[in-house]
Amino acid sequence: MKILLVAEYRDGELLNNSYELVAFAGQLGADSAMFLVGSEGVLPAYNGTLYLADVDKYGEFNPAVHKQLLLDVIAKEQPDMVVFAHSSYGWDLAPRISLALNVAHVSEVIDIVDGVPVVPACNSKLRCDVKAKTAQMVLTLQGGAFGLEDHPTGNPTVVPINTETASEMEFCGYEEAEPGGVDLSKAEVIVSAGRGIGKPENMEMIEELAKALKGEYGTSRPVVDSEWADHTRQVGTTGQTVSPKLYVACGISGAIQHLAGMKKSEFIVAINTDRDAPIGEVADVLIVADLKEFVPAMTEKINNL
């Protein structure tokens, strides 16, 4: 089996998730080649053929152009699978490729069992086995599902690639995440509020519990989107990554994008009315209760210790 890995490059750097693709190919015992719109100066530690397009010429984000560059490599390599990270780059480019190739496309794969991709459904409460009907397939891999090589090593054989395709989009650069706010990565205790708090007034009880535990408060994304808390408090893939000694998730379901930001915490307590909430998968203790009753009661008890 032959796999083409679509590596990622942003802001002058190769992204680490590129090595998850290498780990995936390793787990399948497949031959691989790699595709990258990147730079000669920042080559991946990878032993294999690297089809490299110059990022200065083609841009870090330019779907129509990256698509053509990639299709040319696929025509040459004839891989059985074309594999992307399920990331803002991967989920954008992958459908363009699968449609052009007229092949199956399975998103957010977390496992391959007997050759069949497994994907999550309904916020990870369910799983699906999705079987391709075409010989070739396009996959995007859920972040973290296939691990990372510990110390990747190697030197790729670089094959430069080019295209004449015109762009339909203009990439005008990046806007950094707003600076300031708390650095949650330094907190020893984080008490986080999710949508389950129900209304903005309930942020206060979360802050009180955080204070009682001498920690900081954090939030899931909807709390920030609803402007119940400042966005610098958000934990997750598009917020901060934290690993405190104690993480208390209040009314947070445990979506993969939230888990990615906090699952390395040393001890995790979840308070949730839903016994089946996926947060239970990472929690050391799941307390099935209404946070509006439990959180103030807990705060009071700690303050009286």
Partner: peptide, 8 residues
């Protein structure tokens, strides 16, 4: 990822 935005 990481809360950065790209302008297109």
């Amino acid at each position: 990822e990481g809360g950065i935005k790209s302008i297109i």
